[in-house]
Design a protein around this nucleic acid. Structure first.
Lengths: 224, 224
DNA sequence: CATATTACTGAACCGCTGGTTATTAAGAAA
DNA sequence: TTTCTTAATAACCAGCGGTTCAGTAATATG
Protein backbone atom coordinates (compact mmCIF):
# COMPACT_ATOMS: atom_id res chain seq x y z
CA UNK A 1 0.00 0.00 0.00
CA UNK A 2 2.24 2.68 -1.26
CA UNK A 3 0.31 3.99 -4.16
CA UNK A 4 -0.59 7.39 -2.67
CA UNK A 5 -2.36 8.12 -5.91
CA UNK A 6 -3.98 6.21 -8.65
CA UNK A 7 -2.83 6.39 -12.18
CA UNK A 8 -5.23 8.16 -14.40
CA UNK A 9 -7.79 5.46 -15.07
CA UNK A 10 -7.98 4.75 -18.70
CA UNK A 11 -11.65 4.15 -18.37
CA UNK A 12 -14.15 5.65 -15.90
CA UNK A 13 -13.58 4.75 -12.30
CA UNK A 14 -13.80 7.82 -10.19
CA UNK A 15 -14.97 7.18 -6.72
CA UNK A 16 -14.24 10.69 -5.54
CA UNK A 17 -16.11 12.54 -8.21
CA UNK A 18 -19.21 10.38 -8.33
CA UNK A 19 -21.20 11.90 -5.49
CA UNK A 20 -20.95 15.37 -6.94
CA UNK A 21 -21.85 14.11 -10.35
CA UNK A 22 -24.93 12.42 -8.99
CA UNK A 23 -25.89 15.49 -7.04
CA UNK A 24 -25.49 17.70 -10.07
CA UNK A 25 -27.56 15.37 -12.20
CA UNK A 26 -30.23 14.99 -9.56
CA UNK A 27 -30.37 18.75 -9.08
CA UNK A 28 -31.13 19.20 -12.75
CA UNK A 29 -33.83 16.59 -12.87
CA UNK A 30 -35.45 17.28 -9.52
CA UNK A 31 -35.76 20.93 -10.40
CA UNK A 32 -37.02 20.15 -13.86
CA UNK A 33 -39.53 17.43 -13.06
CA UNK A 34 -40.00 17.43 -9.31
CA UNK A 35 -38.92 14.80 -6.86
CA UNK A 36 -41.57 12.15 -7.36
CA UNK A 37 -41.49 12.32 -11.12
CA UNK A 38 -37.76 11.91 -11.36
CA UNK A 39 -36.54 8.42 -12.08
CA UNK A 40 -33.33 7.32 -10.48
CA UNK A 41 -32.43 5.65 -13.71
CA UNK A 42 -32.47 9.02 -15.44
CA UNK A 43 -30.35 10.53 -12.73
CA UNK A 44 -27.82 7.78 -13.17
CA UNK A 45 -27.94 8.09 -16.92
CA UNK A 46 -27.27 11.81 -16.76
CA UNK A 47 -24.35 11.10 -14.48
CA UNK A 48 -23.09 8.81 -17.21
CA UNK A 49 -23.39 5.74 -15.06
CA UNK A 50 -25.70 2.89 -14.31
CA UNK A 51 -28.56 2.86 -11.88
CA UNK A 52 -27.05 0.41 -9.47
CA UNK A 53 -23.98 2.56 -9.04
CA UNK A 54 -26.06 5.23 -7.42
CA UNK A 55 -26.72 2.93 -4.52
CA UNK A 56 -23.03 2.62 -3.85
CA UNK A 57 -23.02 6.27 -2.88
CA UNK A 58 -26.48 6.99 -1.54
CA UNK A 59 -28.71 4.85 0.60
CA UNK A 60 -31.88 5.74 -1.24
CA UNK A 61 -33.70 8.42 -3.14
CA UNK A 62 -34.34 10.51 -0.07
CA UNK A 63 -30.67 10.57 0.86
CA UNK A 64 -29.90 11.87 -2.59
CA UNK A 65 -32.50 14.56 -2.19
CA UNK A 66 -31.00 15.57 1.11
CA UNK A 67 -27.57 15.80 -0.40
CA UNK A 68 -28.86 18.01 -3.18
CA UNK A 69 -30.45 20.40 -0.74
CA UNK A 70 -27.45 20.54 1.55
CA UNK A 71 -24.75 20.90 -1.01
CA UNK A 72 -26.65 23.45 -3.02
CA UNK A 73 -27.71 26.03 -0.52
CA UNK A 74 -25.49 25.89 2.50
CA UNK A 75 -22.56 27.66 0.83
CA UNK A 76 -24.79 30.58 -0.04
CA UNK A 77 -25.87 31.03 3.54
CA UNK A 78 -22.30 30.92 4.70
CA UNK A 79 -21.28 33.51 2.19
CA UNK A 80 -24.06 35.77 3.37
CA UNK A 81 -23.01 35.45 6.95
CA UNK A 82 -19.45 36.43 6.26
CA UNK A 83 -20.70 39.32 4.19
CA UNK A 84 -22.27 40.89 7.25
CA UNK A 85 -19.26 40.71 9.48
CA UNK A 86 -17.07 42.98 7.47
CA UNK A 87 -19.70 45.55 6.63
CA UNK A 88 -19.88 49.09 7.92
CA UNK A 89 -22.25 51.74 6.70
CA UNK A 90 -25.94 52.42 6.35
CA UNK A 91 -28.32 49.51 6.68
CA UNK A 92 -30.19 50.53 3.57
CA UNK A 93 -27.06 50.03 1.54
CA UNK A 94 -26.41 46.68 3.19
CA UNK A 95 -29.89 45.56 2.28
CA UNK A 96 -29.23 46.41 -1.32
CA UNK A 97 -26.01 44.49 -1.29
CA UNK A 98 -27.54 41.43 0.31
CA UNK A 99 -30.52 41.42 -2.00
CA UNK A 100 -28.55 41.77 -5.18
CA UNK A 101 -25.96 39.26 -4.06
CA UNK A 102 -28.77 36.85 -3.26
CA UNK A 103 -30.28 37.32 -6.65
CA UNK A 104 -26.99 36.82 -8.41
CA UNK A 105 -26.19 33.58 -6.64
CA UNK A 106 -29.57 32.05 -5.99
CA UNK A 107 -32.23 33.74 -8.04
CA UNK A 108 -30.58 33.34 -11.39
CA UNK A 109 -29.18 29.89 -10.81
CA UNK A 110 -30.83 26.56 -10.33
CA UNK A 111 -30.72 27.05 -6.59
CA UNK A 112 -33.97 28.88 -6.97
CA UNK A 113 -35.39 25.59 -8.12
CA UNK A 114 -34.06 23.87 -5.04
CA UNK A 115 -35.90 26.31 -2.83
CA UNK A 116 -39.10 25.61 -4.68
CA UNK A 117 -38.41 21.92 -4.39
CA UNK A 118 -37.84 22.11 -0.66
CA UNK A 119 -40.98 24.13 -0.16
CA UNK A 120 -42.94 21.62 -2.18
CA UNK A 121 -41.61 18.49 -0.56
CA UNK A 122 -41.20 19.64 3.02
CA UNK A 123 -44.18 17.68 4.24
CA UNK A 124 -43.03 14.46 2.65
CA UNK A 125 -39.57 14.56 4.19
CA UNK A 126 -39.80 15.80 7.75
CA UNK A 127 -36.18 15.24 8.61
CA UNK A 128 -34.85 16.88 5.49
CA UNK A 129 -37.24 19.72 6.14
CA UNK A 130 -36.05 20.08 9.71
CA UNK A 131 -32.47 20.22 8.60
CA UNK A 132 -33.27 22.77 5.96
CA UNK A 133 -35.25 24.82 8.40
CA UNK A 134 -32.45 24.91 10.94
CA UNK A 135 -29.58 25.43 8.56
CA UNK A 136 -31.14 27.57 5.87
CA UNK A 137 -34.34 29.24 6.97
CA UNK A 138 -33.27 30.27 10.44
CA UNK A 139 -29.83 31.35 9.38
CA UNK A 140 -31.21 33.13 6.35
CA UNK A 141 -33.65 35.00 8.50
CA UNK A 142 -30.89 35.90 10.88
CA UNK A 143 -29.08 37.60 8.05
CA UNK A 144 -32.02 39.79 7.26
CA UNK A 145 -32.74 40.34 10.93
CA UNK A 146 -29.23 41.62 11.30
CA UNK A 147 -29.83 44.18 8.58
CA UNK A 148 -33.14 45.34 10.01
CA UNK A 149 -31.77 45.61 13.52
CA UNK A 150 -28.79 47.50 12.27
CA UNK A 151 -31.09 49.96 10.58
CA UNK A 152 -33.15 50.43 13.70
CA UNK A 153 -30.07 50.84 15.84
CA UNK A 154 -28.63 53.43 13.51
CA UNK A 155 -31.89 55.33 13.39
CA UNK A 156 -32.54 54.67 9.72
CA UNK A 157 -35.51 52.39 10.19
CA UNK A 158 -38.56 52.58 12.38
CA UNK A 159 -38.79 50.24 15.33
CA UNK A 160 -41.02 47.64 13.70
CA UNK A 161 -41.35 44.02 14.79
CA UNK A 162 -38.18 42.59 13.39
CA UNK A 163 -39.31 39.07 12.65
CA UNK A 164 -42.28 40.29 10.68
CA UNK A 165 -40.11 42.63 8.71
CA UNK A 166 -37.77 39.78 7.91
CA UNK A 167 -40.56 37.66 6.53
CA UNK A 168 -41.96 40.58 4.59
CA UNK A 169 -38.59 41.29 3.08
CA UNK A 170 -37.96 37.68 2.20
CA UNK A 171 -41.33 36.88 0.68
CA UNK A 172 -40.96 38.83 -2.57
CA UNK A 173 -37.50 37.43 -3.09
CA UNK A 174 -38.59 33.87 -2.52
CA UNK A 175 -41.63 34.24 -4.71
CA UNK A 176 -39.49 35.67 -7.47
CA UNK A 177 -37.25 32.65 -7.24
CA UNK A 178 -40.02 30.11 -7.01
CA UNK A 179 -42.21 31.55 -9.68
CA UNK A 180 -39.91 30.66 -12.48
CA UNK A 181 -40.19 26.98 -11.64
CA UNK A 182 -43.88 27.09 -11.02
CA UNK A 183 -46.69 29.00 -12.65
CA UNK A 184 -44.11 31.17 -14.32
CA UNK A 185 -44.01 28.58 -17.05
CA UNK A 186 -47.38 29.90 -18.18
CA UNK A 187 -46.02 33.37 -18.76
CA UNK A 188 -44.75 34.12 -22.21
CA UNK A 189 -42.16 36.66 -21.19
CA UNK A 190 -40.36 36.25 -17.91
CA UNK A 191 -40.33 39.08 -15.46
CA UNK A 192 -37.59 41.67 -15.63
CA UNK A 193 -35.90 40.81 -12.37
CA UNK A 194 -33.75 43.87 -12.31
CA UNK A 195 -36.51 46.42 -12.43
CA UNK A 196 -38.59 44.24 -10.11
CA UNK A 197 -35.85 44.32 -7.52
CA UNK A 198 -35.49 48.05 -7.94
CA UNK A 199 -39.14 48.60 -7.18
CA UNK A 200 -38.85 46.10 -4.34
CA UNK A 201 -36.02 48.00 -2.70
CA UNK A 202 -37.75 51.27 -3.28
CA UNK A 203 -40.92 50.16 -1.56
CA UNK A 204 -39.21 48.18 1.15
CA UNK A 205 -36.90 50.97 2.18
CA UNK A 206 -39.73 53.47 2.24
CA UNK A 207 -41.75 51.07 4.28
CA UNK A 208 -38.97 50.69 6.77
CA UNK A 209 -37.86 54.30 6.93
CA UNK A 210 -39.15 57.11 9.02
CA UNK A 211 -41.24 59.74 7.32
CA UNK A 212 -44.81 60.74 6.56
CA UNK A 213 -47.41 58.37 7.95
CA UNK A 214 -49.13 55.95 5.68
CA UNK A 215 -52.66 56.75 4.62
CA UNK A 216 -55.77 56.22 6.66
CA UNK A 217 -56.73 55.57 10.23
CA UNK A 218 -54.67 52.51 10.98
CA UNK A 219 -51.03 52.07 11.54
CA UNK A 220 -50.05 50.02 14.50
CA UNK A 221 -53.27 48.52 15.70
CA UNK A 222 -54.16 48.08 19.31
CA UNK A 223 -55.68 44.64 19.53
CA UNK A 224 -53.75 41.83 21.22
CA UNK B 1 -91.19 18.15 2.77
CA UNK B 2 -91.75 14.57 2.03
CA UNK B 3 -92.28 13.23 -1.43
CA UNK B 4 -91.63 15.12 -4.62
CA UNK B 5 -88.23 13.47 -4.96
CA UNK B 6 -86.39 10.43 -3.88
CA UNK B 7 -87.13 9.08 -0.51
CA UNK B 8 -84.15 9.25 1.71
CA UNK B 9 -82.16 6.31 0.41
CA UNK B 10 -81.92 3.78 3.12
CA UNK B 11 -78.43 3.10 2.04
CA UNK B 12 -75.95 5.30 0.21
CA UNK B 13 -76.76 6.15 -3.35
CA UNK B 14 -76.23 9.80 -3.93
CA UNK B 15 -75.20 10.68 -7.40
CA UNK B 16 -75.53 14.38 -6.85
CA UNK B 17 -73.43 14.68 -3.75
CA UNK B 18 -70.58 12.41 -4.79
CA UNK B 19 -68.46 14.82 -6.80
CA UNK B 20 -68.30 17.31 -3.98
CA UNK B 21 -67.52 14.59 -1.51
CA UNK B 22 -64.69 13.36 -3.65
CA UNK B 23 -63.38 16.86 -4.12
CA UNK B 24 -63.49 17.53 -0.42
CA UNK B 25 -61.71 14.30 0.38
CA UNK B 26 -59.12 14.86 -2.32
CA UNK B 27 -58.57 18.40 -1.11
CA UNK B 28 -57.73 17.12 2.33
CA UNK B 29 -55.35 14.47 1.14
CA UNK B 30 -53.68 16.40 -1.65
CA UNK B 31 -52.97 19.22 0.73
CA UNK B 32 -51.78 16.88 3.42
CA UNK B 33 -49.56 14.59 1.36
CA UNK B 34 -49.13 16.19 -2.01
CA UNK B 35 -50.49 15.02 -5.30
CA UNK B 36 -48.16 12.16 -6.16
CA UNK B 37 -48.19 10.68 -2.68
CA UNK B 38 -51.97 10.57 -2.49
CA UNK B 39 -53.57 7.26 -3.37
CA UNK B 40 -56.88 7.35 -5.11
CA UNK B 41 -57.97 4.50 -2.91
CA UNK B 42 -57.53 6.68 0.14
CA UNK B 43 -59.46 9.48 -1.43
CA UNK B 44 -62.33 7.12 -2.08
CA UNK B 45 -62.09 5.71 1.41
CA UNK B 46 -62.33 9.15 2.94
CA UNK B 47 -65.34 9.82 0.79
CA UNK B 48 -66.80 6.67 2.31
CA UNK B 49 -66.86 4.85 -0.97
CA UNK B 50 -64.82 2.48 -3.05
CA UNK B 51 -62.13 3.33 -5.54
CA UNK B 52 -64.02 2.26 -8.60
CA UNK B 53 -66.78 4.66 -7.79
CA UNK B 54 -64.43 7.54 -8.20
CA UNK B 55 -64.05 6.70 -11.84
CA UNK B 56 -67.76 7.08 -12.37
CA UNK B 57 -67.34 10.76 -11.69
CA UNK B 58 -63.83 11.65 -12.78
CA UNK B 59 -61.88 10.49 -15.77
CA UNK B 60 -58.60 10.16 -13.95
CA UNK B 61 -56.45 11.50 -11.18
CA UNK B 62 -55.57 14.64 -13.02
CA UNK B 63 -59.19 15.50 -13.64
CA UNK B 64 -59.81 15.19 -9.94
CA UNK B 65 -56.93 17.50 -9.25
CA UNK B 66 -58.29 20.00 -11.71
CA UNK B 67 -61.69 19.90 -10.08
CA UNK B 68 -60.16 20.52 -6.69
CA UNK B 69 -58.32 23.55 -7.91
CA UNK B 70 -61.29 24.98 -9.77
CA UNK B 71 -63.96 24.44 -7.21
CA UNK B 72 -61.81 25.68 -4.38
CA UNK B 73 -60.48 28.96 -5.57
CA UNK B 74 -62.67 30.34 -8.31
CA UNK B 75 -65.44 31.49 -5.97
CA UNK B 76 -62.96 33.53 -3.98
CA UNK B 77 -61.76 35.36 -7.04
CA UNK B 78 -65.30 36.10 -8.06
CA UNK B 79 -66.12 37.45 -4.66
CA UNK B 80 -63.09 39.70 -4.81
CA UNK B 81 -64.09 41.06 -8.17
CA UNK B 82 -67.57 41.99 -7.06
CA UNK B 83 -66.09 43.57 -3.96
CA UNK B 84 -64.30 46.14 -6.07
CA UNK B 85 -67.27 47.25 -8.09
CA UNK B 86 -69.27 48.62 -5.25
CA UNK B 87 -66.42 50.28 -3.45
CA UNK B 88 -65.86 53.99 -3.09
CA UNK B 89 -63.27 55.61 -0.90
CA UNK B 90 -59.55 55.72 -0.39
CA UNK B 91 -57.47 53.01 -1.99
CA UNK B 92 -55.56 52.40 1.22
CA UNK B 93 -58.76 51.38 2.90
CA UNK B 94 -59.71 49.16 -0.01
CA UNK B 95 -56.37 47.41 0.24
CA UNK B 96 -57.01 46.68 3.89
CA UNK B 97 -60.41 45.28 3.09
CA UNK B 98 -59.16 43.08 0.29
CA UNK B 99 -56.24 41.79 2.30
CA UNK B 100 -58.23 40.91 5.37
CA UNK B 101 -61.02 39.40 3.33
CA UNK B 102 -58.47 37.31 1.50
CA UNK B 103 -56.98 36.12 4.70
CA UNK B 104 -60.35 35.22 6.17
CA UNK B 105 -61.43 33.15 3.21
CA UNK B 106 -58.18 31.74 1.87
CA UNK B 107 -55.42 32.09 4.38
CA UNK B 108 -57.16 30.45 7.26
CA UNK B 109 -58.86 27.73 5.30
CA UNK B 110 -57.49 24.81 3.38
CA UNK B 111 -57.54 26.88 0.23
CA UNK B 112 -54.13 28.04 1.26
CA UNK B 113 -53.07 24.47 0.82
CA UNK B 114 -54.49 24.42 -2.67
CA UNK B 115 -52.35 27.36 -3.62
CA UNK B 116 -49.29 25.61 -2.34
CA UNK B 117 -50.36 22.54 -4.23
CA UNK B 118 -50.81 24.39 -7.47
CA UNK B 119 -47.45 26.08 -7.10
CA UNK B 120 -45.81 22.75 -6.43
CA UNK B 121 -47.40 20.82 -9.24
CA UNK B 122 -47.60 23.45 -11.93
CA UNK B 123 -44.80 21.94 -13.96
CA UNK B 124 -46.29 18.47 -13.93
CA UNK B 125 -49.71 19.55 -15.19
CA UNK B 126 -49.31 22.18 -17.84
CA UNK B 127 -52.94 22.42 -18.77
CA UNK B 128 -54.17 22.67 -15.21
CA UNK B 129 -51.50 25.25 -14.60
CA UNK B 130 -52.58 27.21 -17.63
CA UNK B 131 -56.16 27.21 -16.48
CA UNK B 132 -55.16 28.27 -13.01
CA UNK B 133 -52.93 30.96 -14.38
CA UNK B 134 -55.66 32.43 -16.55
CA UNK B 135 -58.51 32.13 -14.11
CA UNK B 136 -56.81 32.75 -10.81
CA UNK B 137 -53.43 34.39 -11.15
CA UNK B 138 -54.32 36.92 -13.79
CA UNK B 139 -57.67 37.76 -12.28
CA UNK B 140 -56.18 37.93 -8.82
CA UNK B 141 -53.51 40.27 -10.01
CA UNK B 142 -56.12 42.38 -11.71
CA UNK B 143 -57.83 42.87 -8.38
CA UNK B 144 -54.70 44.20 -6.79
CA UNK B 145 -53.85 46.20 -9.87
CA UNK B 146 -57.22 47.86 -9.59
CA UNK B 147 -56.42 48.91 -6.04
CA UNK B 148 -52.99 50.24 -6.90
CA UNK B 149 -54.23 52.13 -9.93
CA UNK B 150 -57.06 53.59 -7.91
CA UNK B 151 -54.55 54.82 -5.36
CA UNK B 152 -52.39 56.39 -8.03
CA UNK B 153 -55.36 57.99 -9.72
CA UNK B 154 -56.60 59.45 -6.47
CA UNK B 155 -53.18 60.79 -5.60
CA UNK B 156 -52.68 58.54 -2.61
CA UNK B 157 -49.94 56.41 -4.07
CA UNK B 158 -46.84 57.22 -6.03
CA UNK B 159 -46.78 56.36 -9.69
CA UNK B 160 -44.85 53.14 -9.41
CA UNK B 161 -44.83 50.33 -11.96
CA UNK B 162 -48.17 48.75 -11.25
CA UNK B 163 -47.40 45.15 -12.12
CA UNK B 164 -44.37 45.12 -9.89
CA UNK B 165 -46.35 46.56 -7.03
CA UNK B 166 -48.96 43.89 -7.50
CA UNK B 167 -46.43 41.13 -7.26
CA UNK B 168 -44.80 42.76 -4.28
CA UNK B 169 -48.11 43.06 -2.52
CA UNK B 170 -49.11 39.51 -3.28
CA UNK B 171 -45.87 37.81 -2.34
CA UNK B 172 -46.11 38.20 1.46
CA UNK B 173 -49.70 37.03 1.39
CA UNK B 174 -48.95 33.99 -0.69
CA UNK B 175 -45.95 33.07 1.38
CA UNK B 176 -47.99 33.37 4.52
CA UNK B 177 -50.52 30.98 3.07
CA UNK B 178 -47.99 28.53 1.69
CA UNK B 179 -45.74 28.44 4.67
CA UNK B 180 -48.17 26.62 6.86
CA UNK B 181 -48.24 23.69 4.50
CA UNK B 182 -44.55 23.69 3.88
CA UNK B 183 -41.60 24.42 6.13
CA UNK B 184 -43.98 25.89 8.64
CA UNK B 185 -44.41 22.38 9.98
CA UNK B 186 -40.96 22.75 11.49
CA UNK B 187 -41.99 25.75 13.54
CA UNK B 188 -43.25 25.03 17.00
CA UNK B 189 -45.55 28.01 17.26
CA UNK B 190 -47.31 29.26 14.15
CA UNK B 191 -47.02 32.87 13.17
CA UNK B 192 -49.49 35.39 14.53
CA UNK B 193 -51.17 36.19 11.25
CA UNK B 194 -53.02 39.19 12.58
CA UNK B 195 -50.04 41.14 13.70
CA UNK B 196 -48.13 40.01 10.64
CA UNK B 197 -50.79 41.45 8.40
CA UNK B 198 -50.78 44.65 10.40
CA UNK B 199 -47.08 45.12 9.87
CA UNK B 200 -47.54 44.14 6.25
CA UNK B 201 -50.14 46.81 5.63
CA UNK B 202 -48.13 49.34 7.53
CA UNK B 203 -45.04 48.78 5.43
CA UNK B 204 -46.87 48.34 2.18
CA UNK B 205 -48.88 51.52 2.50
CA UNK B 206 -45.82 53.52 3.47
CA UNK B 207 -43.99 52.03 0.56
CA UNK B 208 -46.74 53.06 -1.80
CA UNK B 209 -47.49 56.48 -0.36
CA UNK B 210 -45.90 59.80 -1.08
CA UNK B 211 -43.58 61.16 1.54
CA UNK B 212 -39.95 61.39 2.58
CA UNK B 213 -37.61 59.63 0.22
CA UNK B 214 -36.18 56.32 1.19
CA UNK B 215 -32.62 56.24 2.42
CA UNK B 216 -29.53 56.29 0.27
CA UNK B 217 -28.71 57.18 -3.27
CA UNK B 218 -31.12 55.01 -5.17
CA UNK B 219 -34.80 55.36 -5.66
CA UNK B 220 -36.30 55.04 -9.10
CA UNK B 221 -33.73 53.90 -11.54
CA UNK B 222 -33.81 55.45 -14.94
CA UNK B 223 -34.84 52.58 -17.15
CA UNK B 224 -38.48 52.18 -18.06
C1' DC C 1 0.79 -15.43 -14.07
C1' DA C 2 -2.49 -16.04 -10.32
C1' DT C 3 -5.22 -13.96 -6.94
C1' DA C 4 -7.70 -10.35 -4.48
C1' DT C 5 -9.93 -6.07 -4.49
C1' DT C 6 -12.64 -2.45 -6.20
C1' DA C 7 -15.84 0.25 -9.04
C1' DC C 8 -19.42 -0.69 -11.68
C1' DT C 9 -23.19 -3.07 -14.34
C1' DG C 10 -27.89 -4.29 -15.52
C1' DA C 11 -31.30 -7.60 -15.24
C1' DA C 12 -34.52 -9.19 -12.19
C1' DC C 13 -37.46 -8.45 -8.18
C1' DC C 14 -41.44 -6.78 -6.11
C1' DG C 15 -44.54 -3.68 -3.92
C1' DC C 16 -47.41 -0.29 -5.17
C1' DT C 17 -51.06 2.24 -7.49
C1' DG C 18 -53.67 4.11 -11.39
C1' DG C 19 -57.00 2.38 -14.05
C1' DT C 20 -60.59 -1.49 -15.75
C1' DT C 21 -64.41 -4.58 -15.60
C1' DA C 22 -67.56 -8.34 -14.31
C1' DT C 23 -70.75 -8.61 -10.80
C1' DT C 24 -74.01 -7.18 -7.20
C1' DA C 25 -77.82 -4.94 -5.31
C1' DA C 26 -80.94 -0.96 -4.64
C1' DG C 27 -84.55 1.27 -6.23
C1' DA C 28 -88.14 2.33 -10.20
C1' DA C 29 -91.32 0.66 -13.41
C1' DA C 30 -94.70 -2.55 -15.16
C1' DT D 1 -93.66 -10.42 -8.50
C1' DT D 2 -90.61 -9.64 -12.44
C1' DT D 3 -87.83 -6.69 -15.07
C1' DC D 4 -84.85 -2.88 -16.05
C1' DT D 5 -81.70 0.67 -14.87
C1' DT D 6 -77.79 2.27 -12.47
C1' DA D 7 -74.88 3.24 -8.29
C1' DA D 8 -71.41 0.88 -6.27
C1' DT D 9 -68.17 -2.72 -5.53
C1' DA D 10 -64.29 -5.99 -5.34
C1' DA D 11 -61.17 -8.36 -7.77
C1' DC D 12 -58.03 -7.83 -11.18
C1' DC D 13 -54.35 -6.13 -14.41
C1' DA D 14 -50.32 -3.73 -16.17
C1' DG D 15 -46.69 -0.88 -15.85
C1' DC D 16 -43.65 1.80 -13.37
C1' DG D 17 -39.82 2.56 -10.54
C1' DG D 18 -37.09 1.99 -6.23
C1' DT D 19 -34.12 -1.40 -4.65
C1' DT D 20 -31.15 -5.46 -4.76
C1' DC D 21 -27.56 -8.55 -5.95
C1' DA D 22 -24.98 -11.81 -8.59
C1' DG D 23 -21.77 -11.01 -11.91
C1' DT D 24 -17.88 -8.47 -14.71
C1' DA D 25 -14.07 -5.89 -16.00
C1' DA D 26 -10.31 -3.07 -14.52
C1' DT D 27 -6.76 -2.56 -11.33
C1' DA D 28 -3.73 -3.74 -7.51
C1' DT D 29 -1.01 -7.26 -5.19
C1' DG D 30 2.22 -11.19 -4.82
Amino acid sequence: MHTAKKLAPRWERRKEARPHEFIAAALDLFVERGFAATRLEDVAARAGVSKGTLYLYFDNKEALFKAVVQEGILPVIEEGETLLQQYQGPAAELLRIVVYRWWETVGVSQLAGVIKLMLSEAQNFPDVAQFHYDQVVLRGRRIFAFVVELGIRQGEFRALPVDHCVRLLLAPLLMLAIWRYSLGVCESEPIDADSYLRTYLDMALRGLAHGGAAGGPADQGSTT
